[in-house]
């Protein structure tokens, strides 16, 4: 289990427990956190699960694969800390993770 805080673009925070092995996207969907559409259900095909990873957590969440990176290249409002949340696997090391969701997914 890892505690993950999802912050909506308007500042609303949702802190939930997510099972390890799930993705950060699945953690949001299962816990009814708004702001992550995940149209393709985690296939890294749609870029509607875009999140901004809190600076303090960037290293622990690793870097995107080449595939993910080129999807992100064309997502709206990409920042250096942008990730596709379906591609971040939850591990114990991510306990406390903070991600923000972009306005476009609301």
């Amino acid at each position: 289990m890892a505690k993950i805080t999802y912050i909506e673009h308007d500042g609303t925070e949702h802190t939930v427990e997510v099972k390890t092995g799930l993705s950060v996207m699945e953690g949001a969907v299962k816990n009814r956190v708004p702001g992550i559409d995940a149209d393709c259900g985690g296939a890294c095909a749609c870029a509607t699960c875009h999140v901004y990873v809190d600076e303090a957590w960037r290293e622990k969440t690793g870097s995107p694969s080449a595939m993910e990176e080129s999807m992100l290249d064309f997502a709206d409002n990409v920042e250096p800390n942008s990730r596709l949340s379906c591609q971040i696997k939850v591990t114990d090391a991510l306990d406390g993770l903070i991600v923000r969701t972009p306005q476009s997914q609301h």
Partner: peptide, 12 residues
């Protein structure tokens, strides 16, 4: 095929 930027760009 394994070229997401072509897909995303192509869609636009």
């Amino acid at each position: 095929v394994n070229m997401p930027d072509a897909f995303m760009g192509g869609r636009m």
